[in-house]
Design a protein around this nucleic acid. Structure first.
Length: 563
RNA sequence: GACCUGGUAGCUCAGUUGGUAGAGCACCUCCCUUUUAAGGAGGUGGUCCUGGGUUCGAGCCCCAGCCAGGUCACCA
């Protein structure tokens, strides 16, 4: 491993600490009885406190020094004074251990007394300190000046995402996003639980990946010897539980989709799905707007939120617009009662790219997506979607071409999707079969599996039910003003870092020869290398194992190639 | 998948027409007992993303690749 100068210095300090009998990684608990936040809130001159955290900055002035200690709640200033810490003749605990052997990033425990400095800053006078854990890698050190401007911020997104632990240590605003994320989940749980709904867990590994149209991740179960799929949705399992007699069930579901990644898509993401019996989608709209107003207030203390240039307000109620009204409003074209051809022509007149394979539903969706969707900045329910696009949704009670479905749009993006759930088992079977036919014809958006067990469940009878899914990542993006999903996931998916191949001396010798002569017969390479049998064997195996060279059998001889 | 931008010290970034690799902070040594972007003096630190090419000479120009971000397309 190649170490930088700074890392070497810290390792040397580690050794010096051990030579002094100081364990840099002690096992015993440290009796913390305060935090930076509590100290600042309940400040009492002279009060004794025990705190622990990371040393984050230091200003040394000879025998005195100010430093900042960072714990889970924030930072507090601490004051190290040589003669307070070293009451006897031996001043080495201050002069050597504190001044020379501690570094920014080290965890220390402090026993001290509270006081205010001459400029009025609440500070801990250190009476004794203990090294709790030594940091061997230097942290980035952003600093804030008198005007509140941040200098040397740790900003490179690649490093921040790959080393989120460092990002969280030095960027308090990043930590705040994740605090809000958890507040959002807690708020939803509270809201649902207070309504008497029941949190459940359903399978992540599914024999049939149902409930949505998306490419799944496939894995294999060894002892059953069957393929299993990471769930793309949990919808069909929650409905089985409604069949089973629960009134209302919900689950925060980590879903997995084997598709592209961009600013708003991560291969794994979190959806919340809730199903409530004896309700319809009109009830669910009321419920949804109450829920989101409550969540926004729990997270931000207000129903208002800023997203980019937009001010949005989650205060209920939200406007409800049918898809037909929306299209009429933004394009002047009324889709009601129109044939597929009429709608296709209208779409072409609007310069929307269409083709012959698109059915009526798809055409309407294209028009809406192109001309309407982006206009809804404030939370707005779009209702009554065409039937073709919603194989799990009940037909509209007043119009057989539509479904009882709504999506909630915020800043032109969908954050919730809900139905009066289809509970007619015969209708459901026919819609699955229609999907299967589409899939057989090569439509990769259609679902290629029929979940017969789910149909069996419906045949036992599912009460009228309304269900809703909310994209949790997207919602927290809106509530924290982040345009990228990576900022609201602790560990967004990244391409793996490439490991530098490190070779032994023998491997290097062989590799140099190989590079100059490849492809070359194995025996010849061995002779040229001049290595003993054992050394040769180890070197060539090392090179093939680390995938820099490859041995291939051609006719009679073994050939070695460079990769 | 296409295009645009970027990759230089631990961090943030300069780098002239192609001519010995730079700054601030951090770090090391020394001074400094209520500071706060502490201060003062001196110093260390580099696979310029990787591999080729052009050239007397490449951080810079050319080609190929890797990684990231963005825009678009695709996809919910």
């Amino acid at each position: 491993m190649q170490l930088s100068e700074l890392e070497i210095i810290r390792r040397e300090k580690l050794n010096q600490l051990r030579e002094r009998g100081i364990n840099p990684y002690p096992a015993d608990l440290y009796p913390v009885n305060n935090t930076s936040k509590k100290i600042k809130e309940n400040f009492e001159e002279g009060k004794k406190v025990v705190v622990a955290g990371r040393l984050m900055s230091r200003r040394i002035q000879g025998p005195a020094s100010f430093a900042e200690l960072q714990d889970a709640d924030g930072r507090i200033q601490v004051y190290f004074n040589r003669d307070e810490i070293c009451t006897g003749e031996d001043k080495s605990h201050y002069n050597d251990v504190y001044k020379k052997l501690l570094d920014i990033g080290d965890f220390i425990g402090i026993i001290g007394e509270l006081f205010k400095t001459q400029v009025g800053e609440k500070t801990i006078m250190v009476k004794n300190f203990t090294l709790l854990s030594k940091a061997l890698k230097p942290l980035p050190q952003p600093r804030v000046d008198a005007e509140g401007k941040v200098h040397d911020a740790f900003t490179d997104p690649e490093q921040r995402y790959r080393q989120r632990y460092a990002d969280l240590v030095v960027n308090p605003h990043v930590k705040e996003i994740f605090v809000k994320r958890t507040k959002l989940f807690n708020a939803m749980r509270t809201f649902f639980n207070e309504h008497g709904y029941f949190e459940v867990e359903t399978p992540v590994l599914q024999p049939i990946p149902g409930g949505a149209a998306a490419r799944p991740f496939i894995t294999h179960h060894n002892s059953l010897d069957i393929p299993l799929y990471m769930r793309i949705a949990n919808e069909l399992y929650l409905k089985r539980l409604i069949v089973g007699g629960f009134d209302g069930v919900y689950e925060f579901s980590k879903n997995f989709r084997n598709e592209g990644m961009d600013r708003t898509h991560n291969p794994e993401f979190t959806a919340m799905e809730i199903y409530v019996s004896y309700k319809d989608y009109n009830w669910m709209m009321d419920f949804c707007e109450q829920l989101l107003e409550f969540c926004a207030i729990q997270v931000n203390g207000t129903s208002k939120a800023t997203f980019g240039e937009h001010q949005i307000d989650f205060k209920a109620p939200y406007p409800r617009v049918t898809m037909a009204e929306s299209i009429k409003h933004f394009t002047g074209f009324d889709i009601t009662g129109k044939t597929e051809d009429e709608i296709r022509k209208a779409a072409m007149d609007m310069k929307i790219p269409v083709d012959e394979t698109m059915g009526k539903g798809k055409l309407i969706d294209e028009i809406f997506g192109e001309k309407c969707e982006g206009n809804y900045i404030q939370p707005t329910f779009i209702t009554d979607y065409p039937k073709e696009m919603s194989p799990l949704c009940k037909e509209h009670r007043d119009n057989p071409e539509l479904t009882e479905r709504f999506e909630l749009m915020v800043c032109g993006k969908e954050i919730a999707n809900a139905y009066s759930e289809l509970n007619d088992p015969i209708d459901q079977r026919e819609r699955f079969e229609a999907q299967l036919k589409l899939a057989d014809r090569g439509d990769d958006e259609a679902t290629a599996f029929i979940d017969y067990d789910f149909l069996r469940a419906l045949e036992y009878g599912m009460p009228p039910t309304s269900g809703m899914g909310i994209g949790m990542d997207r919602l927290i993006m809106f509530l924290t003003n982040n345009p990228s999903i990576q900022e609201v996931l602790f560990f967004p998916q990244m391409r793996p870092e490439k490991k530098k191949v490190e070779m032994t001396e023998d491997e290097k010798t062989v590799y140099t020869l190989l590079k100059a002569n490849a492809p070359i017969a194995l025996e010849e390479l061995k002779t040229q290398s001049g290595l003993s049998n054992k050394k040769w064997d180890k070197a060539i195996k090392g090179l093939t194992a680390s995938k820099v060279a490859k041995v291939e059998k051609t006719d009679e001889v073994l050939m070695v190639a460079v990769l």
